[in-house]
Design a protein around this nucleic acid. Structure first.
Length: 377
DNA sequence: AAATCGGGGTA
DNA sequence: TACCCAGATTT
């Protein structure tokens, strides 16, 4: 008969009996050796390669990451290359991946490594002190590249553990997270932590999926609480989340002698460092065309001759939805004025895509290029 | 403890 | 739509 597994955050080592835990770990490892996908970063044990892959994989699916990873490793094949890279080139390589601070943090970390160690630190406190390396990436690099006994806890691992142990802790709050870390620590295979960690995540990705898990194919089904009780749809539990609001922005696509005005976003905050058409947040009920005109005149300090709506874009961010209205504006007079030390450039249309642009800009780009006046009159 | 930080895929 | 994805940092 199935022995109910007790989870206790006080005594995580008693998740399983010793024999049961050992058997489950072995079944998991055997399954992984058989079923694992051939992913680019699994062909290397270079700590740098593992690191790059883990940074890209934050909140980002494997399918999305693969082409970015291949390109990035060609462009920046070592810590030294990364440390010396031009920031615009880095952002361009990251364009479309999102969470753009990741790549800036990674470069800062690479520069610190070049100064202090020369290699990715193999000691937990040292690697954790690098910008952009939190508990997950530290454990991943230490276990996979350096075979050290640190358990990773990501979304996959939480789902697997929640079902395996019928854990009632919510996956999306900090108290719950601690419970999953304790469970993962207790279940870790110390003989081969790198393989074990990847096996847990691979199981979550391929078998123990969010809906309709493939329990008949699962190496842990015989010791899985949720599978035995047919309650997989109750796990993992999740704390309620707040609703998201909507913002409307108006963007001025200013044309001056055939060139377009691009501005760079500030070095911190949303979409930091990415380029876009200068834009202004609208108040509720404000008319976007009028707001655009007023913004171009009062804030940018530009005289605008005519104005024509060229594109409307909707885009969802994590904590709000964006509606962006873009207007074609013919420059008449004035020099660009921006608040703070923000960069801007007048760009000929065929060079726009050499700049790192965020997704909302890319969505609007075809309509804008099509609406442009002929030749540089 | 809660908010911020992208973008794509899925049912 | 709402949820999910090899999370980290800031407030």
């Amino acid at each position: 008969m199935h022995r109910m597994l007790i989870v206790s955050s006080q005594v995580p080592s008693q998740l399983f009996s010793q024999a049961e835990g050992s058997a489950a770990r072995q079944l998991l490892g055997d399954w992984y050796d058989r079923a694992r996908r051939d992913l680019p970063w699994r062909r290397s044990r270079d700590p740098y390669a593992i690191w790059v892959s883990e940074v890209m994989l934050q909140q980002t699916q494997v399918r999305t990451v693969i082409p970015y990873y291949e390109r990035f490793m060609q462009l920046f094949p070592s810590i030294r290359h990364l440390a010396r890279a031009d920031e615009q080139a880095l952002l361009k390589a990251w364009e479309g991946l999102g969470y753009y601070s990741r790549v800036r943090n990674m470069q800062r970390a690479a520069q610190m490594i070049m100064e202090n160690h020369g290699a990715v630190p193999a000691e937990s406190a040292q690697i954790r002190s690098l910008p952009g390396i939190g508990p997950y990436i530290a454990a991943a690099v230490l276990s996979i590249a350096y075979s050290q006994p640190y358990a990773v806890v990501d979304g996959n691992v939480k789902r697997v553990l929640a079902r395996l142990l019928c854990m009632d802790s919510p996956v999306n709050d900090s108290a719950g997270h601690a419970a999953f870390q304790a469970a993962a620590d207790a279940f870790l295979d110390r003989a081969d932590p790198g393989r074990h960690n990847q096996a847990m995540m691979e199981l979550g990705a391929l078998v123990c999926t969010p809906r309709l898990p493939l329990c008949p194919e699962c190496p842990l089904a015989h010791s899985c609480c949720a599978s035995q009780t047919e309650t997989f749809d109750r796990y993992p539990r999740r704390a309620p989340r707040r609703t998201v609001g909507e913002q409307t922005w108006a963007a001025a696509v200013v044309v001056k002698k055939g060139k377009l005005l691009l501005t760079q976003r500030p070095p911190q905050g949303l979409l930091a460092g990415m380029w876009e058409f200068p834009s202004v947040l609208l108040c509720k009920g404000e008319d976007p065309a009028q707001a655009c005109l007023a913004y171009a005149r009062a804030s940018l300090g530009l005289g605008i001759r005519t104005q024509q709506h060229v594109a409307s874009v909707r885009h969802a961010y994590t904590h709000f939805r964006l509606r962006l209205e873009l207007y074609l504006c013919l420059w008449h007079s004035g020099r660009v004025r921006l608040e703070g030390p923000r960069a801007f450039q007048w760009i000929s249309p065929d060079r726009i895509e050499t700049f790192p642009l965020h997704r909302a800009v890319h969505k609007a780009l075809p309509a804008i290029l099509q609406s442009l006046p002929k030749s540089g009159a």
